[in-house]
Simulated scan of single mutants.
Amino acid sequence: MTSPLTSPVSGSAPTLLLVDDESVFRERLARAFRERGYEVTTAGSYEEGLALASRESPEMAVVDLRMPGRGGLELVRDLHALDGSTRIIVLTGYGSISTAVEAVKLGAFNYLPKPADVDDLLLAFSRGAGESSQVTEDFQPPSLARAEWEHIQRVLTDCGGNISEAARRLGLHRRSLQRKLQKYPPAQ
């Protein structure tokens, strides 16, 4: 396996695609990667990211899960379809087990919660595919509220984001489900 610090092409700078709709965060990460010798291209949406990857396939990609319009999971799937060797890390502030599993199924190399810095990302790239960087010996099972939130997210993902269908499958009124989705996920 190649180290994230070296390129398989004789000594050239590793290429990285960074896709996030938060411009300040995206540019801060891009600058930090450039300072470490990476050749970075940035995009603020699914469309921009896919267009850049179509022109020149990156060795690595960091993709935000939630963006306006088409989301990060679709971008992971399409980047993986363009070039299966691109190592993709999904970054999100709204993580759940179901979205992590879905991202890995679609071709993501790893999954990290925000806020993450360059060191966190490089560590995730250097680990094995899907290997968590936050496994501890004192693992605490999730609370009932967290388990409910993750189950709702999984059903919503299975329904392709269709709230009415997810509410039907969960046996909830559509408005009740919308209220639950507006809340922040429980911490544990």
Rank of each mutant, 00 (worst) to 15 (best):
residue 103 A to H: 02
residue 138 D to I: 09
residue 136 T to S: 09
residue 138 D to W: 11
residue 145 A to S: 15
residue 116 A to M: 04
residue 132 S to H: 05
residue 116 A to C: 02
residue 142 P to V: 09
residue 115 P to W: 02
residue 95 G to T: 04
residue 143 S to D: 14
residue 153 Q to W: 10
residue 150 E to R: 07
residue 101 V to P: 10
residue 115 P to G: 02
residue 140 Q to T: 13
residue 145 A to K: 15
residue 128 G to K: 09
residue 123 L to R: 09
residue 105 K to S: 07
residue 127 R to T: 07
residue 111 Y to Q: 03
residue 142 P to Q: 05
residue 113 P to H: 13
residue 152 I to N: 12
residue 149 W to F: 15
residue 109 F to A: 05
residue 143 S to H: 15
residue 125 F to W: 10
residue 145 A to Y: 13
residue 139 F to I: 09
residue 146 R to N: 09
residue 151 H to F: 14
residue 133 S to C: 10
residue 118 V to L: 06
residue 119 D to K: 04
residue 122 L to Q: 00
residue 112 L to D: 03
residue 129 A to F: 04
residue 120 D to C: 01
residue 128 G to A: 13
residue 117 D to V: 07
residue 115 P to H: 02
residue 151 H to E: 05
residue 153 Q to F: 07
residue 109 F to V: 01
residue 145 A to V: 12
residue 130 G to R: 15
residue 116 A to N: 02
residue 102 E to A: 11
residue 106 L to F: 01
residue 127 R to Q: 14
residue 130 G to E: 14
residue 136 T to L: 05
residue 99 T to I: 08
residue 102 E to W: 04
residue 106 L to W: 06
residue 149 W to G: 07
residue 109 F to P: 00
residue 113 P to S: 15
residue 121 L to H: 06
residue 120 D to V: 00
residue 120 D to G: 05
residue 133 S to E: 08
residue 141 P to L: 13
residue 148 E to N: 13
residue 141 P to H: 11
residue 97 I to T: 07
residue 104 V to Y: 00
residue 143 S to T: 15
residue 150 E to P: 13
residue 130 G to N: 08
residue 151 H to R: 06
residue 117 D to R: 10
residue 143 S to C: 13
residue 111 Y to L: 01
residue 95 G to N: 06
residue 134 Q to H: 12
residue 99 T to Q: 10
residue 107 G to T: 03
residue 121 L to Y: 06
residue 147 A to Q: 15
residue 96 S to C: 09
residue 97 I to C: 00
residue 118 V to Y: 04
residue 101 V to H: 07
residue 128 G to R: 11
residue 141 P to T: 07
residue 117 D to F: 07
residue 125 F to H: 07
residue 103 A to G: 06
residue 109 F to K: 01
residue 100 A to M: 12
residue 113 P to D: 15
residue 109 F to G: 00
residue 125 F to Q: 00
residue 116 A to Q: 02
residue 133 S to A: 13
residue 110 N to I: 04
residue 150 E to W: 11
residue 133 S to T: 15
residue 135 V to S: 13
residue 131 E to D: 12
residue 151 H to N: 10
residue 107 G to K: 03
residue 129 A to D: 02
residue 137 E to W: 14
residue 128 G to P: 00
residue 111 Y to N: 03
residue 116 A to Y: 01
residue 132 S to Y: 04
residue 99 T to M: 06
residue 125 F to N: 05
residue 149 W to T: 12
residue 147 A to S: 12
residue 139 F to R: 12
residue 141 P to G: 04
residue 131 E to T: 12
residue 97 I to K: 07
residue 135 V to L: 13
residue 149 W to P: 01
residue 106 L to A: 05
residue 137 E to D: 13
residue 145 A to L: 14
residue 146 R to T: 11
residue 102 E to T: 11
residue 99 T to S: 14
residue 110 N to W: 02
residue 136 T to N: 02
residue 144 L to K: 11
residue 146 R to Y: 10
